[in-house]
Design a protein around this nucleic acid. Structure first.
Lengths: 257, 257
DNA sequence: TATATTATATCATATATATGAATTTTATTC
DNA sequence: GAATAAAATTCATATATATGATATAATATA
């Protein structure tokens, strides 16, 4: 079923603008996987006919989805559905740089372990599952400049990742989010991180080769997909003597006052 | 000198689009303080005449500046120059929430000290000043929920803040960035933060009433104004047992790829 | 075959215009 | 004087259209 075969209902009397209705219809196509990652979406002229509005309205709708990160427009080529890959990972989801540097660089990743576990109370609550539901627990080490500074613990619900094995996980050619997207049809749309300073416990201090009770950063990341459904819980333990967690911003406000 | 008296030179043969040229001209007005914080800018029709382009082009230029956070459009009212205030501070520059909460709330701020100092080597380098240049060093305590968790150390160059005194600083009715803006014509346009986990030293542990060498968050923030001129160095020391540093994001990419 | 040229497809910019929605100002009415 | 109604102002949405810029595909040429 191609998107061009679909019938879209646009309400010209609605108080929500046409461009927003169209944005929402297209968003639903992304959500329902009628437009798949990396795919070329219909060109503007086709969308004009599909929705029976003027091209400016289409451009505004597509522009919104581009701003939100779901679509990527390329002049002379077409508009594509966003796809997680190494460069987007570095640009968007990796927040560390070596001391004194403002330039991020790709970390090296080393697999540690892959286990089947039962969700703890808090994990189950965050994932919206019954306590004790099967989850995968994965440990990775991340490093920069020949040294490892980060231990990642990933918790994902097994029901959302049927058939995932250690081999598949280790054998991925791209980022973890790309794996979610391509093998399991799960597209991470947003992440929220909470940071604390804690003392390293024995396990972490061994993995990172630092003294026990050294101050480290603990980052709890919640990764969600469409409609704010939580998919992944990731806890990072970071030894920050040689690297910084960086967070830049300008005074941009989105839509608020 | 009103902006409507200015003559703007738009090059219709330039390879940079008209809307971007106009955006840059308006940006320069902000930069040169011809459009002041809180001020109403000319309406779209006036801008059309001023730049001699169509209204769509004006709307694109203004829309860009709105997206960047410099202008705020209000339907039926007009377009205004952004102004730092308490709500923008909370929304944009305060990154802490109580454990378990995703909602930020306004911190209480308590003044600690205001001193005249000489810039250290690293401070001078970051501020682009000779070593030993006079700076103000200000300490504040920030709290949530009747307890203090954050100590802020602020370093600003005295040359940029002529006449600033402890009384003026303490007597401000609004945020610190609002003070910079309204009393000293300095508009902070962007901030960049670097976080580390460290052990509390004696001074911080006393101020926050925690054990010495407890793990705390150390945040180095660099506040800049137009053209990436560094204005403020702020170091926050945060006791994170009851609060989190929060950082949310969606997959938005700005203009990249 | 390899290279240069041309054509085509697609998004980007720009103009012109009409109508709607939200806010403030002014006028009217009681 | 206060409440209400009308008008004016300003940004928001929407249509229609023309031209430009960029990337790819097709064709012609050496």
């Amino acid at each position: 079923m191609s998107i061009t075969d679909l019938k879209f209902e646009i309400d010209r009397d609605s108080k929500t603008p046409l461009w927003l209705q169209i944005r929402n219809e297209l968003f639903n196509c992304l959500y329902r996987d009628e437009l798949r990652p990396g795919q070329l979406i219909p060109n503007e002229k086709t969308l004009v006919e599909l929705f029976n509005v003027s091209i400016g309205t289409i451009r505004k709708a597509v522009g919104m989805l581009e701003k939100e990160g779901f679509l990527i427009r390329k002049q002379g080529l077409g508009t594509f559905v966003f796809q997680h890959d190494n460069s987007s990972f570095l640009f968007e989801y990796f927040h560390f740089a070596l001391n004194g540097s403002d330039e991020k660089q790709s970390p090296k990743v080393e697999f540690i372990s892959f286990d089947s576990k039962k969700a703890t109370k808090s994990q189950a609550a965050e994932l919206g599952l019954p306590v004790g539901s099967p989850v995968f627990q994965i440990y990775n080490k991340l490093g920069l400049n020949k040294k490892f500074y980060i231990v990642d613990k990933i918790i994902i619900p097994q029901e959302k990742f049927p058939g995932l094995t250690e081999e598949i996980f280790k054998g991925r050619a791209n980022t973890i989010y790309n794996l979610y997207q391509n093998k399991f049809n799960i597209f991470i749309t947003n992440c929220s991180e909470k940071l604390k300073a804690i003392s390293a416990d024995e396990k972490i201090s061994k993995l990172l080769n630092i003294p026990t009770s050294a101050p480290i950063l603990k980052i709890n990341r919640v990764g969600q997909t469409y409609n704010n459904v939580t998919i992944e819980l990731r806890t990072s333990f970071v030894h920050t003597s040689d690297i910084d967690y960086i967070h830049s911003q300008n005074s941009t406000f989105g839509e608020s006052i």
